[in-house]
Amino acid sequence: MAIDRINWDNLRLFLAVVRAQSAQEAARRMEVDHSTITRRLHRLEKELGAQLFERTPAGHLLTTAGQRLLEHVERMESSMVLVGEDIGGDSHMLTGHVRLGATEGFGSFFLAPHLSHFCDRHPGIQVELLIVPRFINLSQREADLAVNIERPQRSGQVSSKLTDYRLRLYASRSYLQGRPPIRQLQDLAAHRFFGYVEELVFSQELRYLTSIMPGAPMSLRSTSVVAQYNAVREGRGLAVLPCFMAAQCADLEPVLPHEVDVLRTFWLAAPADRRELARVRALWDYLRELVERNQPFLLGDAPGWQRV
């Protein structure tokens, strides 16, 4: 069957199943019967003459044909969104919703306090801040733009370096007062640490503790850097933390700051089509202005941030 005769509603259902990773979850999100989703997917596969999904106990997995279709349908969806917003004028106006994805520590400890000022500057824009300890999936439209700790490699995205930031080893004053002194790296063997659950680390960029001290004795592991930060504040151990987080607790002190000095990078990315929307460009430009003003703070060279 010719592509121009395929029902767009069936393609929308196909997208929903891809993003939900199961027909049952897609049906729940779209508030339709599961049987309706299944029936229309079969119809779409018959129209295209190709199997789009492997049905497995873990969910619906795209076949090679399904992956090719997804690329076409996402381009169609993007074009339709831009046409609607362009005709309605929204693509040129500073109004509407913008969803920003961010890593947990940066989103909670740095971005959240500043975004209210962005909203004051642009009262017609409503910002949704998506904070998760993983990568934001822009290709599945989880967000309009995202801050990640690795440079995105997918096509169809615009990305640029946002800022470098520094991490150091931290402990509370109460912990340091009651434990053996730490004067060199070898002294760390007498102390305990908080870090990530090794097999659940979502990026190699987070494996800094193993490079500093292989085999460091861990008393608590967590997928959350905020959990590690709160554990250190309780005075029960040490952890490698971003300076922009640790600076917000007066009781935390850097340990061996010259020996333990980790530099990492945040990257800003957006789908190419969403990047052209005025409200997305406004937030993109604000983030760049914000981090430029706060380079000393993000690098651990200033005690507090500056607003823009």
Rank of each mutant, 00 (worst) to 15 (best):
V262H: 03
E104L: 08
L129R: 05
L252V: 11
R281T: 02
R154G: 05
V158I: 10
T56W: 01
A250D: 15
A146Q: 03
R39N: 13
M213V: 05
V81F: 10
P214I: 00
D301T: 03
E128Y: 03
N7R: 14
L252R: 07
L11S: 10
I131Y: 04
T210F: 00
E104C: 07
S219T: 10
I136C: 11
S79D: 12
D4Q: 10
E292I: 00
L62P: 07
Q228E: 13
V240E: 08
R279D: 02
G215M: 04
L206H: 09
E234T: 12
V98K: 10
S78T: 06
H60Q: 14
S155H: 03
I182V: 15
T63I: 03
S159W: 11
D187P: 11
G237Y: 08
F194A: 15
L41I: 15
S78L: 05
S155Q: 08
P181L: 11
F106P: 08
G49Y: 01
C243F: 06
I136G: 00
R43Q: 14
L188K: 12
A65P: 03
V255Y: 05
R233N: 05
L268I: 11
M80I: 14
D86G: 04
Q153F: 05
A216E: 00
R39W: 05
L290G: 06
A27H: 11
M93A: 14
H42F: 05
R75V: 04
F244D: 08
D33E: 14
F194C: 14
L70R: 10
L209N: 01
A16C: 12
Y229L: 14
D144Y: 03
L62W: 00
E142S: 03
G178S: 15
F109I: 09
V262P: 10
H114L: 06
Q306G: 02
R179P: 05
Q153M: 07
E25W: 04
R151E: 15
R75Y: 02
H92T: 09
R5D: 06
Q21P: 06
F266R: 10
A189S: 15
F118P: 04
Q153H: 05
G88H: 07
L61I: 11
R293A: 14
Y229T: 02
Q248D: 12
L206D: 02
N7C: 13
L44D: 09
G215T: 03
